[in-house]
Amino acid sequence: MATQHSRSAARFMMAPAVILLLGWMLVPLTMTLYFSFKSYLPLRGGDLGWTGFDNYVRFVTSSAFWPSVITTLVIVGGVLVITVCLGILLAMLLDQPMWGQGIVRILVIAPFFVMPTVSALVWKNMFMDPTNGLLSHLWRFFGAEPVAWLSEVPTTSIVMIVSWQWLPFATLILLTAIQSLDSEQLEAAEMDGAPHLSRFFYIILPHLARAITIVVLIQTIFLLSIFAEIFVTTGGAFGTRTLTYLIYQRVLESQNVGLGSAGGVYAIILANIVAIFLMRIVGKNMDA
């Protein structure tokens, strides 16, 4: 009953939410854009006027830019590979009927509920600490020299921490995908003489293709902006400075709001490119 009257009433009722959301998004976005064209140094003279595209050029030509892009790619790529591979394995495991299935599933999902800052601190102090960490105890138990995780292999450590956080998400999505696989297809393949491994590669993996793409794209959007995990562990040292972290440093450590904002705009563009791919694929999923 979408009469003229009820429609305008609906618009009227939705207006507060829409305005709030728009304001929420538009105000910071406009401010970022505004500052990115300014030379704005709060502790060194404040607003020094318009500078055109200077900030944009300076951001990409600085010596820290390319290393930070590479670090971002390594961390995002590493986490994606680990979460997708382990996610598929875990999902297949959880799909098997087993004792205590409900509890195991909740346990697997648990890391997702831990705040990034907390989980990074837990990893840093309880697992990766070179003297008291559980991992160093483990190393010593086997007679090996403990690893100073966060200074010797900082990028790997961060990849490990972030993977631990995102594995539940990947597992959950892949588990629902696996559960939607028609068991008759697997039985048909079994009758057709396909051993376990072939059934995995010819039937299960293609069936999961869409779910994997979705996991990859959604995670990419969120992983591009990881911050807390770096902030509380290495603080951007030892080559763990990602694009997001670089922006943070430009704004808060060098107190150059204009330069940081330009970096922020680059990040927005990047995230949108990924988002467009995501919408396309999710949209296709709906059609099929």
Binding site: D182, Q185, E187, A188, A189, M191, D192, P195, I203, P206
Partner: peptide, 15 residues
């Protein structure tokens, strides 16, 4: 697979 039988399923079970 070793029984040498082929099955046609109600849902067709095509890949």
């Amino acid at each position: 697979a070793k029984r040498g039988l082929a099955m046609v399923f109600q849902s067709y079970a095509l890949y």
